[in-house]
Design a protein around this nucleic acid. Structure first.
Lengths: 227, 227
DNA sequence: TAGATTGTTAATCGATTAACAATC
DNA sequence: TAGATTGTTAATCGATTAACAATC
């Protein structure tokens, strides 16, 4: 068994999360550059465009194992390949989704169209009026059928877009069905076995940062105006 | 003028962003506790439930200015009030949204129902077939009318849910109309004047972290099984 | 060769965690 | 009073930034 230190993060030492979060940004930028015919691209250039320290860009790229040439930079295509490989965007990662409300429906359509590494192959909802519907090419099933369907599908990724009150129960069902990674949009802390990871995406957290920074920046400028 | 150091963050020194991101989580948890009749609540208890270090909880609360009692903890209601006040969830922060596609529509409905501090009062879209529609009680206008409408509405917060290719142009229009805070869902780095803040929420970043952690944890457990 | 960029090692900075005194 | 918790100061940890040598 993996020792449970209570510190889940210790399993991921050497995995700098900020770097990981920047990877898709690099990817998008590099793909646009590649489309414009940019063969070689340097870290200082990318840094200027993305508002990042050039050393940080170099370090981030080093993690993927790509090699650059002094004075020239990196091969754009090779860089794209390496980043996609590193974060797993080039594999087909199948997922299921629970809670086909507003947010859930959006994720369904969004994931299918944008295709960011995951493919949602089934959705579930507790509301009987939603079962049988199809959203973003995905069938919505009754939540009771999750066990039966997952037994056949062998999916490891689950997305929770249920109301907060239903999130923990949904997570329990998912882990009981073999889900090993949960993308949780509900504003609750989920309790899961230690061979399961949870990635929280909270709209609330982002609104909080947005509002507070806005408030502070406005104060700053008001002070300056009154001097 | 505020000196532009190139480091936007320097304007926000003393604003620990991780703390800010935890605030809505505390808030949600405290509201549930309050509903259950919990009058006083301690940092160690909250820490256990939310998987956080108790000292961190104490420090986070201290930022809001709330006072606790040794041996007792904090008054739940007072704590809720202080956090709401601190992050601005108790004010009505009006916003507009540009890009009423899948994600945009979801945010429209989601924001209205959940009411997390912001109230979207108008939406805009470039697609003529969408103008005139109402989603989540919000009217969708032609993007050309943004100038005219914002002149009257005096809104400071803008949400960008357009395709990536249209995001920068949308941001330019918004800032030209007096928007001071942009919540950007497009996977691009926006360039804005330095009295405007940008909060990026990237689905891609979250998927990247999810996929990589999942991959690593599975490897860990595979290794353990084979020992 | 000169100069820009990679790649690596060291310094800084900020957040988390630990230690501990104050207090109810 | 004893003990749990707040509140604060110090230590640790990790990420960012700076410095600089290697290299094309």
């Amino acid at each position: 068994m993996v020792k449970d230190t209570g510190k889940r993060n210790q399993l991921f030492t050497g995995l700098p999360e900020p770097t990981l979060r920047r990877m898709p940004e690099y990817l998008h930028f590099l793909q646009r550059a590649w489309e414009r015919g940019v063969i070689d691209i340097s870290a200082p250039y990318i840094g200027r465009e993305l508002n990042l320290d050039p050393t940080q860009v170099v370090k981030d790229f080093a993690i993927t194992g790509v090699k650059g040439k002094p004075k020239v930079g990196y091969n754009t295509y090779e860089l794209i390949q390496n980043i996609e490989e590193y974060i797993g965007f080039n594999r087909t990662n199948e997922a299921i989704l629970a809670g086909a409300g507003n947010l859930g429906s959006a994720i369904l359509s969004y994931a299918q169209f944008q295709g960011f590494g995951i493919k949602i192959i089934a959705a579930f909802d507790a509301d009987p009026s939603k079962t049988g519907l199809i959203k973003g090419n995905v069938n919505i099933f009754a939540i009771e059928r999750i066990h039966e369907l997952l037994h056949r599908l062998k999916v490891q990724i689950g997305i929770i877009t249920t109301p907060a009150a239903a999130a923990q129960e949904t997570a329990d069902t998912m882990t009981a069905c073999g889900i090993k990674a949960i993308w949780n949009f509900a504003p609750v802390t989920l309790k899961v076995p230690d061979d399961v990871i949870v990635q929280n995406t909270s709209m609330y957290a982002n609104v909080a940062v947005l509002l507070k920074k806005h408030q502070l920046l406005q104060e700053q400028f008001r002070i300056v105006e009154n001097v």
